[in-house]
Design a protein around this nucleic acid. Structure first.
Length: 585
DNA sequence: GCCGTTTTCGGCCCGACTGTTTTCAGTCG
């Protein structure tokens, strides 16, 4: 069973409990929903957690759910789940996939109309709505009937189900709306919040916060946004619209004196906020987007710093707000100082257009252009790491000649450029048996290499780990490129034995790459966090194939921050001499 | 069902908006 399937099963369990007795099972419902969310966000298959006997390390999975999962993997079914699900018509679960359908509404409909077939339930419901049958039901009316028809239509067209946006793309979409909002005289400040502010690798909805003294005017202006395809809802301080591609934009407004509370509230994450509010309750405080209530009296906060301070907490960087221990550290004022973009001294994974006759794609910008960009980014150094010359088209001798020529070209450039230093690197394929694609004689021409997997991704955990460790064992192999091979929205990464990889990297002075390429953003933040804890060094690279892409470094830095990486965890924060020394280590 | 630097028992966030209810239920974030 995939993680998505298990998450859906758990959501069904929660829904079935709601139908059974929402009050009685209140906390089971929360528990299963929480576990479902956690599992949906894992980058490792739950089946692998099971195999490694690590199920209880999944947040929200305790003794009970653990034993149910074990039963699920052993027998393919769970007695307790069958008991919970019994009595809830299967067709209900299909309806839950449609936005605006919750358990109660779905239950009323499938029960009243006796809808039994989960495969046809949506079509059946549509027919009933078209005949006007739904409006006749108690607690339904004409409006809810037409809303149901539209919800079904949008669901069929994939609205709300469209793949999540990769972070840099979401930032672009948000920028457009932010610029539009800045055109209103009533908007004092506007900020993208939610998962975008937390810099999550993929973004669903876009959340925007506005500071304004005239919320009504701002809302009227917002819903007239030229990108808007449909108004979803519109109130006194919030509104939501649907823009092209089925993307939802949520707007929330507070006056400037409460903007700090709004920033905090709307940035989330949900888990972070829930934990924060529970903590506040113990201090007899109640938190909301309006501020902090004490003895029924509301105190407003214009900045987030003041808001957190009022709770005796250090201000927590948005990237850390996932309720994975950051609140506890903020209480002790012991949050790590996270790496920042200005700490970066160089980019070690760039593909120029040098005609290296590579195995994979060549860059489109010249070495000179890339050096110029490196300088404008205030870098001390850059590493050229084009793909190795194709091994199917060239002999080893020919590869050596190509690389020799490239070295000469680099040395020639360096004579005219004084302020940026260059490392002669190469991105080398780790072949399926674990051998590097080029031989020692050619490797000798390099200062070091980024080694990566570019073929045969479907190996099991042990084999893939062996393959990578073999590839990394060459003295010149210093950086493991895009370590999990994940392509966001396309394929999940291969599973690796991280503890073995970490141990090897520490022992032999190897670094894991944090790849800033928008569709990769690889390493995943949870693995970065584990690497930081294991004191394994990393390098943040862009994998640029053209100059403009070198500016994507900030997304790699965001990813590192989400993994709680400090400057000292990232090797390309070192100056040229120190980095050079490490390459030779 | 989960979880823990006030607790292994006894807690478990807070609010906006809509449609259909004439005071609230359901969904969402």
């Amino acid at each position: 069973m995939t993680n998505a399937q298990i998450a859906k099963l758990f959501r069904n369990i929660a829904a079935a409990y709601i139908i059974k007795d929402e009050k009685k099972f209140r906390f089971q419902i929360i528990a299963y929903q929480k576990a479902a969310d956690a599992i949906a966000h894992l980058n490792t298959e739950v089946a692998d957690y099971y195999k490694n006997n690590e199920l209880d390390t999944i947040p929200g999975v305790g003794a009970s759910i653990k034993s149910h999962l074990e039963e699920l993997f052993k027998k393919g079914k769970v007695k307790h789940f069958e008991w919970v699900l019994k009595g809830t018509p299967e067709a209900l679960f299909t309806l839950l996939d449609i936005p605006t359908f919750g358990p109660k509404k779905a239950y009323k409909l499938v029960r009243h109309f006796d809808l039994k077939n989960p495969k046809t339930v949506i079509d059946d419901l549509e027919k009933l709505a078209k005949k006007g049958k739904i409006a006749e039901l108690p607690s339904f009316g004409e409006k809810s009937q037409s809303d149901i028809l539209r919800a079904i239509d949008e669901y069929r067209h994939g609205v709300g189900k469209t793949t999540r946006m990769v972070l840099p793309y979401a930032a672009e979409v948000a920028d457009k709306i932010v610029n539009y909002l800045k055109g209103s005289k009533d908007v004092i400040r506007v900020e993208p919040l939610g998962s975008l502010r937390r810099q999550v690798a993929t973004i669903g909805d876009i959340d925007l916060a506005v500071a304004s003294k005239n919320p009504k005017e701002v809302i009227d202006y917002f819903v007239k946004c030229p990108f808007s395809e449909r108004l979803i809802e519109k109130g006194t301080i919030t509104a939501s619209i649907l823009v092209s591609g089925g993307r939802q934009i949520d707007l929330m407004i507070q006056p400037p004196e409460s903007f700090g509370s709004l920033l905090q509230h709307f940035t989330g994450s949900k888990d972070h906020n829930v934990h924060l509010r529970e903590l506040a309750l113990k201090k007899h405080l109640s938190l909301s987007e309006y501020g902090i209530k004490k003895n029924g009296k509301l105190q407003k906060y214009d900045t987030e710093e003041k808001f957190y301070k009022a709770l005796d907490l250090q201000w927590i960087p948005p990237e850390m707000r996932e309720d994975t221990g950051e609140i506890e550290l903020a209480e002790k004022h012991r949050l790590p100082k996270l790496i920042e973009i200005n700490d970066i001294k160089g980019d070690l994974h760039t593909h120029s257009n040098y005609p290296i006759e590579p195995s994979h794609d060549l860059g489109v910008s010249s070495m000179e252009e890339m050096l110029k960009m490196a300088k404008s980014l205030n870098y001390e150094y850059i590493g050229f790491s084009e793909h190795n010359p194709s091994i199917s088209k060239h002999t080893n001798q020919r590869i050596y000649e190509i690389l020799k020529k490239r070295s000469e070209k680099i040395e020639h450039i360096l004579e005219s450029i004084k302020n940026v230093r260059v490392f002669k690197l190469l991105e080398i394929d780790i072949l399926p048996p674990g051998k590097l694609a080029i031989d020692d004689k050619s490797l000798d021409l390099l200062d070091g290499a980024v080694v990566s997997i570019h073929s045969v991704f479907s190996m099991n955990r042990n084999k893939m780990t062996e393959r990578i460790l073999n590839g990394l064992s060459h003295k010149k192999a210093k950086i493991l490129g895009h370590p999990t091979g994940r392509m966001l929205n396309l394929r999940s990464g291969y599973d690796l034995d991280w503890n073995r990889i970490f141990e090897f990297c520490k022992k032999y002075h190897k670094a894991l790459e944090i790849n800033s390429w928008p569709n990769r953003l690889d390493l995943p933040d949870q693995i970065i966090r584990r690497a930081v804890e294991a004191d394994v060094k990393m390098v943040i690279n862009t994998d640029s194939h053209r100059v403009a892409q070198m500016e994507l470094m900030r997304y790699g830095v965001s990813l590192a921050r989400r993994g709680w990486a400090k400057k000292s965890d990232i090797l390309n924060t070192l100056g040229y001499n120190d980095f050079s020394k490490w390459l030779k280590s």
